[in-house]
Amino acid sequence: MTLKPNLSVKEALDFIAKRLDPIIAARLAGELGGHPWTVVLEILDEKKGFAKGYKYWTYDLQAQLRMITERLGDFGYPFDDKQRTVSTLGNELRIVRKQMAHMYDFSVEEAFRANDFCVRLLEHFDDAEGLQEARRIRHEALIALAAEEGVTEQVAAATATLPAGLVTAAVELPAEAVVGDGENEPEMVTPDPAVLVREPSVIGDKRLEFEPWTVVEVGGVDVLDNLPKKAAKEKVRATSVEIATYEGPIHLDRLVQLTAQSFGLRRVRSSREKKLSYQIQQAGLFVDADKFVWPREIDSDAWNEFRPNGSVVERPFIHISPVEIANAARFIKKKRNEIDAEELEVAVLQTFGRRRRTKRITTHLETAMARLAEDRWSEAAHVDYPASDR
């Protein structure tokens, strides 16, 4: 019987969803006081400032993959090891699931890879019972791949299997940001603990800090070479949407870099950068006037959250949205009402792991702080003055 790649991928994803639910539930059973594990995602959404109203189900693969790839507050990464094996495989499957949801036309090789990710994930969880069926699904795809390529199964498996290893994300700054202005010079700065305080919840009473996406290689440079062909653009868009959902709001330049790295490219030429930027903007993501990309889950006009980070976290200050910086400033100002403008700027920089002010950092900070001035003008416009003062 001829293998139908999309049906093969669907079978694998449906099966692993059945296996992940009890694995997640068992790992968190002692922490949730009888609540279903989906309550964790509801709290995460609130802390991230996602739009309300989304209902999660324990059998939903999208919810399961979020649980095993995202930091769960004080629980950290309860399913991962030091090598971030689960996060890596989980991110691979997040992209595969996104492709499947958008009716991507998988090749036989891609079907085998997706099935292989499922097998390796269950191997990590020592799910002996589930592995038997997962390996059967993978083997059917391997037989078809070997026949298609005219090689042995061993050769087909060796050439098709991606390493599913962590790709070191090295997001490049624009040249003018790194030449002689100290933007990348090391600092050791941590946020003031006061900015991390939030209301108590099942997953702790801390504000969520910024967590960078774990870059995984989901294809080769040939995918980027084939833009704007249908299969290539669908794969690129699915990847960029998952990254934006995880990190957003995210600067367009950073998203382009992370997307390119997902296809084995470390340096992006301007011509390719334009192609990737176009595909990202065609993926249904909102790009604001400051070139920040917002996931569908966040209303950019209503978002009032911010994600502190220390200087050891790879996120250049100029790649933090002015909206996010202004949100942090409002929070600090509310907590320390007597703080003056200079002290406020110092506190905001510390919140995002900075102390040194380069020219570009100063300009970016001024852009963000100008939003506070807009707040004051807006408040003044709504003051009900006495008639004699009008």
Rank of each mutant, 00 (worst) to 15 (best):
F75E: 10
E140P: 02
R376S: 10
A128P: 01
S270T: 14
D181G: 10
H251R: 13
W377F: 13
D105M: 07
D127L: 07
D74S: 15
S388M: 09
F15H: 13
I280T: 09
V346Q: 10
Y246S: 12
E129V: 11
K274G: 02
I320G: 05
G180H: 10
T351G: 13
Q64R: 14
D389P: 00
T2Q: 11
R71I: 12
W213F: 15
L65F: 06
A238N: 01
E273N: 10
L142S: 02
A144W: 08
L252K: 08
V119G: 03
V108P: 00
A238R: 00
T2R: 01
L196E: 06
F306K: 00
A26S: 12
V287L: 05
V119Y: 09
F263N: 00
E343S: 13
I250W: 00
S300C: 10
L349G: 12
W377M: 09
K52G: 12
T168V: 11
T363F: 10
D290A: 10
S201H: 04
R136A: 13
D299F: 06
D14Y: 09
E172C: 02
T69M: 12
E242A: 09
G49A: 11
R97G: 06
E11P: 00
L41P: 07
F75T: 05
Q279H: 14
F75N: 03
R120Q: 12
E297N: 03
N304R: 06
E46N: 12
M369T: 09
N115A: 13
A26I: 02
A146C: 11
E234I: 06
L372D: 14
K230G: 05
A63N: 04
L208T: 02
R237H: 03
P22T: 08
V119S: 10
V218C: 11
Y104E: 01
